[in-house]
Design a protein around this nucleic acid. Sequence first.
DNA 1: CTAGGGTTAG
Length: 621
Amino acid sequence: MKRLSLKPNLLTVNTLLSALVKYPSTNCSIMCRELFNDAVRLGVKLNTNTFSILMKAYCIELKFDDAIGLLKTMGEFGCEPDNVSYNTILDGLSKKGRLNQVRDLLADMKGRGLVPNRHTYNILVYGYCKMGWLKDAAKILELMTQNNVLPDVWTYNVLVNGFCGDGKIEEAFKLLEEIEGLKLFPDIVTYNTLINAFLEKKRSLDAFELLEQMKLKGVKPNNSTYNIILKWYCREGKMDEACDNIKRMEEGGFSPDSVTYNTLINGFCRAGKLDVAFRVMNEMTGKGMKPDAVTLNTVLRIFCVERKHDEAYELLNSARKKGYIVDEVSYGTLIAGYCKDENVEKAMKIWDEMKQKGVIPTVLTYNTIIGGLCKSGKTAEAINKLNELLESGLVPDQITYNTIIHGYCWAGNIEKAFQFHNKMVEHSFKPDIYTCNILLRGLCREMMLEKAMKLFNTWISRGKIIDAVTYNTLISALCKDGKLDDAMALVSDMEEKKLGPDIYTCNAVLGALAEAGRTKEAEDIILKVVETGSVHEGTVLSQKGKLQDPPTVESAENSDSGSVVYSEQIIEFCAQKKYIEAMQLLKELTAKGATVNRSTYMTLMNGLIKRKKGTMKVDKM
DNA sequence: CTAGGGTTAG
């Protein structure tokens, strides 16, 4: 078109821009900007929508300053921002928890005489919920009513999700009554949110009951319903039932989407079944669904788990060149991987690269690097990162603070841990069960057992929530200190509260019990642990009297040396980008009943992500 | 707006 010197019209420009934004790839905003510049050069008269779409592009890449800048510059083109323009940026900011900027922009919006509409309010409710500021979120609802903008199901769904995310399912249900009072009806999103919340809280019975209730009320499940249940099966490691769920999904007339496939791939990866994970990934591509950013990040994670960090790094870079969205999650995955490998230097290097590429970290990304720095004893640098986080306008969360408190404990600086904790409490930080357990463990490490017990008793008398970790921390410390009777008293205590004993309790007390010749008690506790089902079948007792998990798939796989030659051949094909040959060989091998090692499957997954158009078809494996 | 990928305690 450009070559023919034809002038595109406004509709063409906006349609193209929308398409770029709808299916975003790397450098989405740069491509949009180029298109925009071309349009300007060709003298196309642009409208407000053009700018709003461009803003959306910037928001996708978290370039909020550029997006906000457009609000001013669009005036030079004779365009004025409208509600859509503001809502677009507000939505982007709100989703990433940048509430300070939301506030400023909202003031700016009102200053222009624009009136927030329902969408604007819904965005605010979402933002507050995401931050866990539920009271503020509820206040927005009041504000809406005052301003004659009535909340809709959407508003309530956001709020329901907020309450669920905070673990307040019962309060979320109260909202349902409120919805019905307004003659609105809970829809499939409402139900999906609640079912998901039950499953996350391990209340599967409630979840399935609600599912039935939902059907009775005539609300039909959708793809997401099945995906939510699928996720639960995967998390529980019930991969057979996960597959049954897919069958039911298809029987119900739904087809697996990319979320379904990514959930399954992740599930099989976590279960150590890389061969099946690869097969699913291949099936996904066969059905015309390309591996996407989530698939990429899943594969990056499994590479890191398998300690192939450098391969993961290489994959990240080549995926970016192939147009994948490489986001803060991708970089965060690698950063976490290197941190676990005790290579913070490399993790920091990747952090810098991420920044240099214009990928903006979220709180979670910060938490990852802060945790890594803490674990390697670099608490001062961790604090630097915390300050950087604050300067960037983000708000630290529970995990940020807990990580730093843990960092001080890890460094043996229990005083500083408490100091930091106290200072944060003054700044409205609410210690949770993690905080308590971290501090308790810190005291135990420093042989301040008495102080730990004192703290523990204060919590009990104040009715604070304690859990199995709390008990196990103390029990383990008491055993190491030779106070077996005190430890056993806590064991019965935790049993009374139905918090255990579990496998950690066992590991803590069995050695001491055996040494004291108290075999009867040792047998008792093992029996209880098995009864409560907190140990999966196949757990074996080693000679030292400690419970151990059965040998992992990994060690079993390492012994399949028979097909090493073929594995190497497949890997070689992949290296030469001869994926078709690689797949052919794999097919032949599987037909013969031979197996290849996990490394080979990882190389094949790598190939699926990187390949351009060449097919990697394999029929039945 | 909900669903899939990366972070905290024993």
